[in-house]
């Protein structure tokens, strides 16, 4: 829980902050600069809460957490610790896998709430510091524009990504074999498969939530 949530906060925050900032710049320079204040704030808010917060946050956490889970369980597998659990009549699934999946499902949305706030602050920071927007108007625009649905859809996505991240780590770790090299392979496979599944399932969920 603490590992997935708390220790992922700095890297998720940084990712989100810079993404929010870059997004603000792109919209400002790429779009019509007339009425840009309202447009920048609303598109940053939408982009971060609906897509970029959960997806980029999910991928960053996949890099941190899927890999760590795969390495940990993979090492347990190749050193026979998982077999030892079975002989001591402890079910490896409920002992090792279930708690990890539950913490992923719970912690990812909590992380993404922070990512949303910090991403919007990134846009706000660039907007006020380098594009000359009015700070309180920017915040007011964001609040007026955002709907509960924008945030909640992102958090549902995040929860599903938490499931993908942890289950891929567990699956690859459990199925690793062949010593240190096998554990290395499991680690890589966990990150790659979790990232790809996050991107693919994100597309499907966006389709479900918004294309009606």
């Amino acid at each position: 829980m603490i590992f997935i949530g708390y220790f992922s906060l700095p890297v998720v925050s940084l990712t989100s902050f810079f993404t929010g900032g870059a997004l603000a710049l792109q919209i400002y320079y790429g779009g019509n600069q007339f009425n840009s204040e309202a447009i920048v704030s609303s598109i940053v808010a939408l982009g971060i809460t609906r897509e970029l917060g959960p997806v980029l946050g999910g991928i960053v956490v996949a890099g941190r957490v899927s890999s760590a889970i795969a390495a940990e369980l993979g090492t347990m597998k190749v050193t026979e610790q998982i077999d030892a659990l079975k002989t001591l009549s402890a079910d490896p699934i409920s002992y090792l896998i279930v708690p990890r999946i539950i913490s992923g499902i719970i912690m990812l949305p909590i992380l993404i709430i922070f990512a949303d706030i910090i991403g919007i602050m990134g846009g706000w920071f660039i907007g006020t510091q380098s594009l000359g927007f009015n700070g309180s108007a920017y915040i007011q625009n964001t609040i007026d524009f955002l709907e509960v649905n924008d945030i909640s859809s992102g958090l549902i996505k995040a929860s599903f990504f938490g499931f993908i991240i942890t289950i891929m780590g567990c699956y690859q770790g459990f199925n690793s074999n062949g010593g240190a090299q096998g554990v290395g392979k499991a680690t890589t496979n966990a990150v790659v498969s979790a990232s790809v599944l996050i991107l693919a399932s994100n597309y499907i969920m966006t389709n479900l939530f918004f294309a009606s």
């Binding site: 347990m76 050193t79 026979e80 610790q81 077999d83 030892a84 659990l85 002989t87 001591l88 009549s89 402890a90």
Partner: peptide, 24 residues
């Protein structure tokens, strides 16, 4: 209920020795 001494040991390395011994 069969105890087994694994060839490679298979102590749970995230647990202390007493937690390993009394795991069951």
């Amino acid at each position: 209920k069969i105890g087994m001494l694994f060839q490679g040991g298979a102590l749970f390395d995230s647990l202390r020795i007493w937690q390993n011994v009394s795991f069951y």
